[in-house]
Simulated scan of single mutants.
Amino acid sequence: MKTNTFITLSTATANVGVLVGLVFLIFELRQTSTIALSQMTQQRALSYIDQNVAYAPDQEFSELMARVYKQHDFDSVTKNEWFQIARHESIERTRARDIWFQYNKGLIDDGIYLLYINSAANRLPLWEWLEVFVPEDFKADAIVRSEEKDFQAGAIRTKFIEWSKDNKSPYEI
């Protein structure tokens, strides 16, 4: 066998080996990405479950949540209860911002993102009133979402905006 033929065959074999290695690497990266997404989704679900399990036995807090989020009876909420709601909303903001961040990195699908950005857009007036810190870039996207044609404002948003026109934040009282 000539030296050139040997070199050509060994180069071709090496190139085929590299291509096969790249195919396996791509397959493995996709599999790892799927596993990571699954783990993130599971962690998010578990944190949500943990939060609600912690609230469930607390009758007073459950009743407060019902008054604010279901009955929209904002007048019945005391200053200290507003502080509790502010802590709760800070957690919700953190969860929504995490989803927003992961979506912008391509790690969350559209359905989950839309659910959380809608929630953020609906809660933004409450967050501002309660002085819950909202990062500007996240806030801007929530505002954009609230101005889109297909956005449906929830009762918490519409009723709270109307109520808050005549009521000061608990931090101003």
Results as ranks from 00 to 15, higher is better:
Met1His: 09
Thr3Glu: 08
Thr3Gly: 01
Thr3Cys: 02
Leu9Arg: 13
Ser10Ile: 08
Asn15Asp: 03
Asn15Lys: 05
Val16Tyr: 00
Val20Trp: 02
Leu22Trp: 10
Phe24Asp: 03
Leu25Thr: 07
Ile26His: 06
Arg30Met: 14
Arg30Ile: 10
Gln31Lys: 15
Thr32Val: 13
Ile35Lys: 08
Ile35Asn: 00
Leu46Glu: 12
Tyr48Arg: 05
Val53Leu: 11
Ala54Phe: 11
Tyr55Lys: 08
Pro57Met: 06
Asp58Thr: 08
Gln59Cys: 12
Phe61Gly: 01
Ser62Gln: 13
Glu63Gly: 08
Leu64Cys: 07
Met65Pro: 00
Val68Lys: 09
Tyr69Leu: 15
Gln71Phe: 02
His72Phe: 12
His72Tyr: 13
Phe74Ser: 14
Lys79Asn: 05
Asn80Phe: 01
Glu81Cys: 05
Glu81Thr: 06
Trp82Gly: 00
Trp82Gln: 06
Gln84Tyr: 12
Gln84Cys: 09
Ile85Tyr: 03
Ala86Cys: 04
Arg87Asn: 09
Ile91Tyr: 13
Glu92Phe: 00
Arg95Val: 14
Ala96Val: 00
Arg97Phe: 11
Arg97Cys: 11
Asp98Phe: 10
Ile99Asn: 01
Phe101Glu: 10
Phe101Pro: 00
Tyr103Glu: 13
Asn104Gln: 11
Lys105Tyr: 07
Gly106Tyr: 14
Gly106Arg: 08
Leu107Gln: 10
Asp110Asn: 06
Tyr113Pro: 01
Ile117Phe: 09
Ile117Thr: 03
Ser119Met: 14
Asn122Ala: 02
Arg123Asn: 10
Leu124Lys: 00
Trp127Gly: 00
Glu128His: 03
Glu128Cys: 11
Glu128Leu: 03
Trp129Glu: 04
Phe133Ile: 05
Phe133Gly: 04
Asp137Leu: 06
Asp141Met: 01
Ala142Ile: 05
Val144Asp: 05
Arg145Ile: 02
Arg145Lys: 01
Arg145Pro: 01
Glu148Asn: 01
Lys149Gln: 10
Phe151Asn: 02
Gly154Glu: 07
Ala155Cys: 08
Arg157Trp: 05
Lys159Tyr: 07
Lys159Asn: 14
Lys159Trp: 06
Glu162Lys: 07
Glu162Arg: 09
Ser164Thr: 02
Ser164Arg: 03
Lys165Glu: 10
Lys165Met: 10
Lys168Ile: 04
Tyr171Ser: 14
Glu172Lys: 10
Ile173Gln: 09
Ile173Asn: 06
